[in-house]
Design a protein around this nucleic acid. Structure first.
Lengths: 148, 148
DNA sequence: CTTATATAATACCTAGAGGTATCATTTATG
DNA sequence: CATAAATGATACCTCTAGGTATTATATAAG
């Protein structure tokens, strides 16, 4: 039931950058704080700016900023871009033609789970995460990793 | 949130074999009814009998039978064997040291989802699936595939 | 205008889940 | 007891998410 790595990374990156939403963050800084493989992080940051969650400032003293208001960026929006397959209505049994006309026995229950997850993701914005962050919750780990 | 292929296969196999719980099923028959890659299915059947959900009858006219009572075999038992990682309490953000002492902001909500899924899996036995099967629900698809 | 420091683009590598292929073993039956 | 029809064991192949490496481009600032 867990997300793929890329989604976890994206969630952590944006959650971290939400702490001081208006300033810019370099890849190096994010790398120091979150522990995401350096070069993969670079690639992911580029993707996140291509998909307009961030915008990039190139050249010396460059970096990335969150684009848009925190309360408008829901986790659901992120996962839609980063792992669009995640919320596709897959049949519990993996049956291809399990649809509304003739559903498998687990269909309704599984739909309940899907809705549950969907609701959480749709109702949690970066603003919510930022706020939770001020209540001795951790959003990120502070491991220090080495560049590779 | 979806299961891996092997889990889906295992669910379908056992659900199918529950229809006539007391007779034996050959790999060939299961292959004809469910559409699971033939040789992978063979391997999986052997694993399922090694882990005692099935027992195998070797030699001519051989096959597999479900071992034990349908109501005692919960989907949870199956997934525990076939994909033990699935229900491990992974942090929402993939943070390694997110634990009870200091949890991430999504911890409780994510735990709710985990419990939801867990409850479904723990409360659904092969007997339940068999019963649902008698109410114009599909448990299996009837595609006919070719051996490879 | 050169240099240092940042991101962008692109191509390649790797491990593991899923899938194949081959040969060995068991056993019912003529 | 020979054969056919089943499962068992084992080794290999393949595709993709995740991870690396290298080169190109942008820009602040001395």
């Amino acid at each position: 039931m867990k997300f793929n790595k890329t989604t976890e990374y994206a969630f952590r990156i944006l959650s971290y950058m939400a702490i001081e939403e208006s300033r810019s963050y370099s890849v190096d800084e994010i790398f120091e704080k979150l522990h995401i493989p350096y070069r993969y992080l670079r690639k992911l940051m580029t993707n996140l700016s291509k998909s307009n969650f961030l915008y990039s400032i190139q050249g010396k003293n460059g970096g990335y900023k969150i684009s848009g208001k925190l309360e408008d960026i829901k986790l659901l929006n992120l996962i839609e871009v980063v792992d669009p397959d995640y919320l596709v209505s897959n049949c519990f049994f993996g049956i291809e033609n399990c649809s509304r006309e003739s559903t498998c026995i687990m269909h309704d229950q599984w739909d309940g789970v899907r809705t549950h997850i969907n609701t959480i993701l749709a109702n949690t914005s970066l603003a919510d995460i930022k706020q939770g962050n001020n209540q001795n919750k951790i959003v990120l780990n502070t491991f220090h990793s080495l560049k590779t």
